[in-house]
């Protein structure tokens, strides 16, 4: 017998279930009195540098139904492409960008809204530049393990063309599923499709 690896296995994922809001956003659900505020109501503070943008979208299932129970978390860099994280070693991020948000599908319409600043391109220490993007993690009833995807921007065509992550998508027409569509100045639309012909690209990274 060879030596044993002193390693553990990741805890297996389980669905967040239909009642995820009880735990993660009790105030939004109407369960007041436990926490003064829900966490992640906004990824920015007043004075955040960069272009203010609003992204609106929904999450649709394989039968064409819009989810009203989806919970999305977003994580992004500041306008200079720096992450507001203790383990960001390339520089100090804008103190008015927290970078992380919890975004809820509206309980009636299913639309979700993210008000933030447009992130900058992220220069990788090993070389290469990732186009401006917002990482998403999607959980809901029926989703057994959180889905990773990214919002890129259709008006960043040049940066998108050089992005090493987008370059990994073999079926090029599917890159479109990751591009937020510009509706008007500072306004974007980004719909997420869980299953079907226009299925969003999901990552394992």
């Amino acid at each position: 017998m060879p030596q044993k690896l002193d390693q553990l296995r990741e805890s297996p994922s389980q669905t967040a279930g239909p009642y995820v809001h009880i735990g993660l956003t009790p105030n939004a659900l109407g369960n007041h009195g436990i926490y003064p505020d829900d966490l992640g109501t906004t990824p920015i503070k007043p004075g955040a540098r960069g272009e203010a943008i609003t992204i609106i979208g929904h999450v649709r299932d394989g039968a064409g139904m819009i989810l009203r129970d989806a919970l999305i978390e977003s994580w992004q860099a500041d306008a200079a492409g720096l992450y507001p994280s203790p383990n960001e070693r390339r520089g100090k991020a804008d103190p008015n960008v927290t970078g992380w948000a919890r975004i809820l599908a509206d309980f009636d319409t299913g639309d979700w809204v993210l008000k933030t600043i447009k992130p900058g391109a992220v220069t990788l220490p090993q070389g290469g530049v990732m186009a401006p993007h917002i990482a998403l993690w999607i959980v809901a009833r029926g989703i057994n393990i959180g889905l990773q995807t990214r919002i890129y921007f259709e008006d960043e065509a040049e940066a998108n063309a050089d992005c090493p992550v987008l370059a990994r998508i073999e079926h090029k027409p599917r890159v479109q599923t990751l591009l937020a569509k510009k509706v008007s100045t500072g306004q974007y639309r980004f719909n997420i499709v869980l299953q079907g012909d226009d299925e969003t690209v999901f990552f394992d990274m």
């Binding site: 669905t15 299932d61 394989g62 039968a63 139904m65 989810l67 994580w75 860099a77 992450y83 507001p84 994280s85 203790p86 383990n87 960001e88 927290t98 970078g99 992380w100 992220v122 990788l124 220490p125 990732m130 993007h133 990482a135 809901a140 009833r141 029926g142 989703i143 057994n144 889905l147 990773q148 990214r150 992550v165 990994r168 998508i169 073999e170 599917r174 869980l194 299953q195 079907g196 299925e199 969003t200 690209v201 999901f202 990552f203 394992d204 990274m205």
Partner: peptide, 25 residues
């Protein structure tokens, strides 16, 4: 419930980047 909420295409796999290696504190 997973039947219509499960992606049917393969996940696009690659090594983690700074976007996955950093996170909120």
């Amino acid at each position: 419930t997973s039947v219509t909420r499960a992606p049917s295409r393969a996940l696009v796999a690659m090594g983690s980047t700074l976007s996955e290696e950093t996170g909120p504190a």
